[in-house]
Computed example of a mutant assay.
Amino acid sequence: MVRLTADLIWKSPHFFNTIKERELDLRGNKIAVIENLGATEDQFDTIDLSDNEIVKLENVPYLNRLGTMLINNNRITRINPNIGEFLPNLHTLVLTNNRIVNLVEIDPLASLPKLHFLSLLDNNITKKPNYRLYVINNLKSLRVLDFKKVKNKERLEAKNLFASKEVIEEIQRTPAKTFSTGETPNVSEAIEEQQTPKVVAPTPEQIIAIKICV
């Protein structure tokens, strides 16, 4: 495990990316805890924390400039309920291939007032019934979810589906995956899937498309 120290931040690559934003590259350092990001002095538009071992999206200082966080290929299961207070201008968040399981775990993202692009691909949450509509209903500012544009038809469908509190609570309780009668899940494969995350990441072309679309 590597600590995210001020020294690591200062020594990590930083550059102007393809869309002329200032980006800090912290990927692939085996970082387990987000900390000391105040050492960036809010000088970056994009911070890339991909390919680490981060478990919780928390401990983020007030970063007014930050617009994009790339945190794919980590182990995130929880998100700070008040994250929006610290990232008021975050518009793009890539959480592809993490360990988010339950729908309620993405509710804190509703506190991000300008969140337009979100990827939750390759999280177990995406296997939940009505997952996409739940996210669209809760995150009103979203324009693109999992690389697919949010359509007005989906917004209306989500609004109608989640018109009552009882429906929301029922969907939140529904297991992510069920097996039909007589079907036996492969336990060893399930354990391996939980313990060994796949290395899945947006391609450079997708990253460019993400930032252009917002």
Rank of each mutant, 00 (worst) to 15 (best):
1 M>Q: 09
2 V>Q: 11
2 V>Y: 02
5 T>F: 05
9 I>D: 01
20 K>M: 10
26 L>Q: 04
27 R>Q: 09
29 N>K: 14
34 I>Y: 03
34 I>G: 02
40 T>W: 04
40 T>H: 03
54 I>G: 03
58 E>Q: 14
59 N>G: 03
63 L>W: 04
68 T>K: 08
70 L>H: 10
74 N>M: 05
75 R>K: 10
78 R>D: 09
78 R>I: 01
79 I>Q: 06
84 G>C: 09
89 N>G: 08
95 L>H: 08
107 D>V: 12
109 L>D: 01
116 H>V: 04
118 L>H: 05
118 L>C: 02
121 L>Y: 14
131 Y>W: 15
134 Y>N: 08
138 N>H: 12
144 V>K: 01
156 L>K: 13
158 A>E: 02
159 K>G: 09
167 V>C: 04
170 E>V: 06
170 E>C: 07
173 R>Q: 15
174 T>W: 04
175 P>E: 06
182 G>N: 12
186 N>I: 12
186 N>L: 15
194 Q>K: 13
196 T>D: 09
197 P>V: 02
197 P>D: 08
199 V>D: 11
200 V>Y: 07
201 A>Q: 14
203 T>H: 07
204 P>K: 12
208 I>Y: 10
209 A>W: 14
212 I>K: 11
214 V>A: 09
214 V>H: 07
214 V>M: 03
